[in-house]
Design a protein around this nucleic acid. Structure first.
Lengths: 201, 201
DNA sequence: TCCAGTTCGCCTTTTATTCGCTAGAATGAC
DNA sequence: GTCATTCTAGCGAATAAAAGGCGAACTGGA
């Protein structure tokens, strides 16, 4: 987590601005605050800071930079140790590990919401009723991704996304269910699935 | 918390109005307070704020906007809004909800670790290779719970737990796999599964 | 029925992202 | 010591997306 001189200046500007105004600066405001003339430079700085875990950001969202509190006073938070693989032939106590996992690893800096799954349209991919899918809010998707889509403005569904000419095919993962075909204009993508969370009672 | 300038102005107006009057403003009052001429714009703002979890609202009910206490001073922002159920026939943006979900909801204040699953012994229960199981460290289990157990001191496995006289049956959830029978003395319970976390690349 | 709230197109402005390019400083291999 | 590689730092332009806005039509609760 070594930070460079310039990066610290960026950090300081971000915290001060956010403190003062109650919202984060736009890239243009950062540029003028630091005497830079290219937004690309600002973007690169913020990306670097983000990779170092000092700030958080949502993709393509205005003023979404979030200065993270320094990791110093980290509590027994949502992060837990990852002790290894279950098939390993050793007692888990014996496994030492520096790895850990948390929701942050799935979310990253995206804008994410959760939906409780109802129905079995993705059963063959082991997403079942009662699970929570973690969805990144986005309007676009790539071939084969699992998405939440709104068909004809009324029906939200969880399906895999395929483009077929001017049509969209929404493919359930359930041998008993047929795919939905619809004109691209009638399919509004609500987001794409980043992960699944299941809770046992 | 990823708020824009205009959104902060809306928030400020809402808090001030509610503070002063004891009830929340109508959309028309908000519009005139902010110099807007279309209620649609107001509605969009409030919807955005709601999606960011800053206000709460009831559907189609007058003056039902509720400014939520800012959860400033919160560290792990691993909590995300739970927008509703996927089968609901409405766009997810429209679903109102103040609910949210995070790993904390699964963990509580137990001692928990994670294991990456390898193999398909619990496939029929939709726990598959690559998933992470969240395990509470405990020595005991109740009938039918999914546990991590160490058999004969060497083999850690993920199975359902059943007691049969002096023997333990460890039941995989996979029609192709046979249960393991072992004397209770040879089975060491490492923990029980509280949840599952899956991440898509 | 009435009216506040909601949804629908459609538009403009603001903001973020990406690409190709230059250049200095640090690192590591030979 | 020199050379290739990598990282930080910077520029301007082109793109793409979100935020903010409008009026009109529709809806659902008291």
């Amino acid at each position: 987590m070594a930070i460079t001189r310039r990066q610290k200046e960026v950090m300081d500007f971000l915290s001060n601005f956010t403190q003062k105004n109650g919202y984060s600066p736009s890239y243009e405001e950062i540029a003028s605050g630091l005497g830079l003339s290219s937004l690309a430079t600002v973007h690169k700085h913020v990306t670097n800071l983000q990779n170092k875990g000092m700030v958080q950001r949502a993709h393509n969202r205005s003023r979404s930079i979030d200065v993270l509190p320094s990791r110093a006073g980290k509590k027994g938070s949502e992060r837990m140790p990852l002790l290894g693989r279950i098939a390993a032939g050793r007692p888990v106590e014996a496994i030492e590990s520096a790895e850990s996992i948390s929701l942050g690893d799935i979310i990253g800096n995206r804008e994410v919401f959760a939906l409780e799954v109802q129905g079995d349209s993705m059963r063959d991919e082991h997403i079942v009723s009662g699970d929570y899918v973690l969805v990144e809010r986005t309007r676009t998707a790539r071939e084969g991704e699992i998405i939440v889509a709104l068909v004809d403005g009324t029906d939200a569904t969880l399906k895999r996304f395929y483009r077929e000419g001017t049509m969209i095919r929404l493919q359930p993962s359930n041998a008993e269910m047929a795919p939905i075909y619809a004109p691209a204009a009638n399919v509004a993508i609500q987001g794409k699935v980043l992960g699944v969370l299941r809770k046992y009672a």
